[in-house]
Design a protein around this nucleic acid. Structure first.
Lengths: 288, 288
DNA sequence: TTATGTTTGAAATTTTTGATACAGCTTCCC
DNA sequence: GGGAAGCTGTATCAAAAATTTCAAACATAA
């Protein structure tokens, strides 16, 4: 059994850091307490036991057991530690940058670093004029918008579609399997915009859909990786995102960020018509 | 005479600022209290009345009179105000992402910067042990894995599902509309893992699905935002991601990165069985 | 299934804390 | 020097908070 002496534990780590390390050995209730504290570190711990308990959805005794397990002799001592840590952090020049301690290890950190590099590279490589042109297309309410994507990028396409369909009419998602789009593609023509997502191991059916759309006069927008899908040849606009990741799989995160930036810009562009529309949708959801 | 009503005073200024203005009219012991508070703002005020009194070299009642003069109805209310002010100040650099900025040129760059901040914050807040526990669950081939998510996060859940189903058996996506899962949820029990995605404006149907699953004995894993979906109450494991963005919408990018990191880790864990499986799938796709 | 050990929250208990009444003290003006 | 007005601290009380107890619920292993 762990020592549960009444001393404040020595700190090679900050409290937040220690909790993240030890959280694996916690009981379910203790985990809830830990999560609440970490997600609002350290303010969640500065109120009363009862307040903390109800915010975490557990009982007061469980909160006490939680702080006891952390090595404190009682709740007041625990709070004292939080206050002191907070004061020390806040007064140091680094200050809030490192509040809550830096989680050292984990498979997550290197992945996040790679994605950050991708984002930087993507920002550099996307032509602002191209970005704006796509925003203008998506904000053009006379046009119909179709999203599609491959095995993995399909989810990103759906993400784009689920936002845009709230902002305006005539937005839909098309599955990339030919059997599922053959009939739907017939009506596509000059007034349609086809937004295709395709990253490497470029997918034949997505390419076929894009080429068919282009042949029928649709404006094709391509979101792809830095090496460009073959669809780039028929696309009117291309937004390339970097996808390298320390994994067997590519990362679609930068692609997603481009999508979110597009959605944000379109929202701003369409605000006068989108706002009442969003409110109406909200009312429907609520009233339903 | 000054108003001494029980309300928290309206703040054109912060409390510290107001004290500096009004300090001239304070009695000697009130001045001592004020000086202590200002010189260790706001931490001196976060302890007990007795502690504050002794640090200031005055008596407890004088401290009470001091906070009363500042317009608070009591010491606890005074503390609450200090905590809120501190929290607001500390979080403002993150939250301030103003909407009014120039929307035209380079809407992508500020968005990417915000996402990078989110990623950093997310890496700090995710407990490595919690992350590993989820990897272990997802890599356990005796269990069945179910993904679900809300209006927008549903796409992220699909993204996770589309990767994981290539690595192993028994992976599926469940739509969050109750009508679509009522029949599917019956078979869910102790050997099932339910991975739910839910960020703010937490969605009732996702919560209902999660609670139902938990009630039937499934292990619930929650991917949510930093404020934690109500589902955190029933979830065995919680991975919180930061979602703030300079847009009317939240950003799911950090959530996606967590998913990608999970998938990468599971791939590594299952490599001996996953590799032949992936090759077989590849052959099927080609040969088709 | 039964038996065993954990985990948990409701309620009772103890401790701490904030608040108040009141008397002594200081100050300052006449 | 006397006395009123306002400060201040001691002693005390009431309220709130933390803590402990204990039995039920739960999970786990046999």
């Amino acid at each position: 059994m762990l020592k549960r002496s009444g001393r404040t534990p020595a700190e090679p780590h900050s409290l937040a850091e220690r909790i993240r390390i030890e959280i694996a050995h916690f009981t379910p209730s203790e985990k809830r307490a830990a999560h609440l504290l970490l997600s609002h570190y350290p303010f969640a711990g500065l109120g009363t036991v009862a307040e903390f308990a109800s915010r975490a959805g557990i009982s007061a005794p469980s909160v006490l057991r939680f702080v006891t397990r952390l090595g404190f002799s009682g709740f007041p001592e625990f709070q004292k530690h939080l206050r002191e840590e907070l004061e020390a952090q806040l007064l140091s020049p680094l200050g809030k940058a490192s509040l809550g301690g830096g989680a050292k290890a984990g498979a997550l950190a290197p992945f996040a670093e790679a994605v950050i590099a991708n984002l930087r590279a993507t920002v550099e490589n996307v032509a602002p004029a191209e970005f704006d042109a796509v925003v203008t297309l998506l904000a053009d309410q006379r046009r119909r918008i179709h999203f599609t994507g491959g095995r993995f990028t399909g989810a990103v396409a759906r993400y784009a579609e689920s936002h845009l369909r709230i902002l305006r009419e005539d937005v839909q998602f098309i599955e990339s399997q030919p059997a599922l789009w053959r009939d739907r593609v017939i009506g596509i023509g000059r007034r349609d915009v086809l937004v295709a997502f395709d990253i490497r191991r470029y997918q034949d059916d997505v390419i076929a859909l894009g080429e068919t759309g282009a042949r029928q006069g649709a404006t094709v927008v391509l979101l792809t990786d830095q090496w460009l899908s073959p669809l780039a040849r028929v696309a009117r606009h291309v937004l390339p995102a970097h996808v390298a990741a320390p994994s067997n799989w590519d990362s679609s995160a930068a692609l997603l960020v481009v999508v979110e930036a597009l959605v944000g810009a379109v929202t701003k562009r369409l605000w006068t018509t989108a706002k009442p529309r969003m409110e109406a949708i909200e009312r429907l959801r609520r009233g339903e």
